[in-house]
């Protein structure tokens, strides 16, 4: 099976700034792929390299096997949902959606019919005559979605698709996007800086740092087995243990991660410390200890006794829960 998108050693340098630096990446057809990372990590540039708004300064980009490194955006079978939606304010919703068909020369009646079809898909059938300014944020997002889908792209790119929505709407849209992707069977590639969003929506994700991919894998992989200290830090609420501590716990002298939910409180254990913070999370309570200067969190499930702040306690865990990581 060919990959929907493939990067081989792709770089995009802006002068001395290496926005994307030697990235290798393969996105399987039909996957819901997330590019996660802090701002400036290169994830958005990667998305723009796929859409064609940026040209690589090195390497090769293939979409469904075809080298598109020098193909302009309007000739790629890829469409984008922009972060600010970029709806055309002077056109009504229907014309916005039909825009991609109009520039291809499709007749008015045909393209309007197709646009209405798309609007039905995003549940906005009755809104064709409105102007974008008359819609709510969530509705605009759907219009942007319909507009990007009308050209029947094989890859849909979404740039921080939920960033402008409030929390409740964001959760609803997460489900909806996922359902839509499932129904259409398209490849979705989306960029986000929100690890929860990435973990909950994507079936595969790449974590970006400093223009490079720090780790690529399923959400499970990334969450349970962060490859680097950066990934562990950025993605999760995992404990990051310095080499000395790992060694003290019986491992090799290397950085390691330890998920709070894999730990339990004990009267004795390899790690002892004073409780410095307590946070009630509903499903349990997060207890933070100060173990000789290293902060370590443990998750106490609901119904079990919770130590008081200032008390000294120990943490125990299965040795297999300790996950060794590469890098400094």
């Amino acid at each position: 099976m060919t990959n929907a998108v493939e990067f081989s050693n792709v770089s995009r340098h802006f002068g001395l700034i290496k926005a994307v630096d030697g990235v290798d990446l393969a996105i399987a057809e039909g996957s819901f792929f997330a590019m996660l990372g802090p701002s400036g990590s290169g994830k958005t540039t990667c998305l723009r390299l796929i859409s064609g708004f940026e040209k690589p300064t090195g390497g090769q980009i293939r979409i469904f096997g075809e080298d598109v490194s020098n193909t302009p955006p309007h000739l790629r079978n890829v469409n984008t949902v922009f972060q600010d939606y970029a709806l055309f304010p002077h056109m009504n919703v229907r014309d916005n959606v039909a825009y991609g068909l109009m520039v291809k020369g499709m007749g008015r009646v045909a393209r309007h019919a197709k646009a209405e079809e798309m609007l039905a898909l995003v549940k906005l059938d009755a809104y064709g005559d409105r102007k974008p300014a008359q819609l709510s944020g969530g509705q605009r997002q759907r219009v942007a979605l319909a507009r990007a889908l009308v050209n029947e792209p094989r890859v849909l790119l979404l740039d921080e698709p939920l960033g402008a929505l409030d929390l409740k709407l964001r959760e609803a849209m997460q489900d909806e996007l996922k359902a839509l992707q499932h129904r259409l069977g398209l490849t979705f590639v989306f960029v986000t800086h929100d690890q929860h969003e990435a973990l909950s929506m994507a079936d595969h994700l790449a974590v970006f740092n400093d223009g490079k991919i720090a780790q690529i894998g399923t959400p499970q992989d990334i969450y349970d087995r962060p490859a680097t200290r950066f990934v562990a830090d950025f993605v999760g609420s995992s404990n990051v243990l310095p080499p000395a501590l790992t060694r003290a716990l019986g491992g090799p002298e290397a950085w390691a991660s330890l998920r709070p939910e894999a730990t339990r409180l004990a009267t004795t254990g390899p790690v002892r410390g004073r409780v410095t913070a307590l946070r009630y999370l509903g499903s349990g309570t997060r207890v933070v200890l100060d173990a000789n200067g290293t902060e370590i969190a443990a998750l106490v499930p609901s119904g079990q006794p919770v130590p008081a702040e200032g008390e000294t306690t120990a943490i125990a865990f299965e040795p297999s829960a300790l996950h060794l990581m590469a890098g400094a």
Binding site: F53, P72, P73, H74, N79, F82, A86, L87, A148
Partner: peptide, 11 residues
């Protein structure tokens, strides 16, 4: 982004 959207849609 509006100009990019236009190009993205094939204009």
């Amino acid at each position: 982004s509006m100009l990019e959207a236009s190009a993205d849609l094939g204009a």
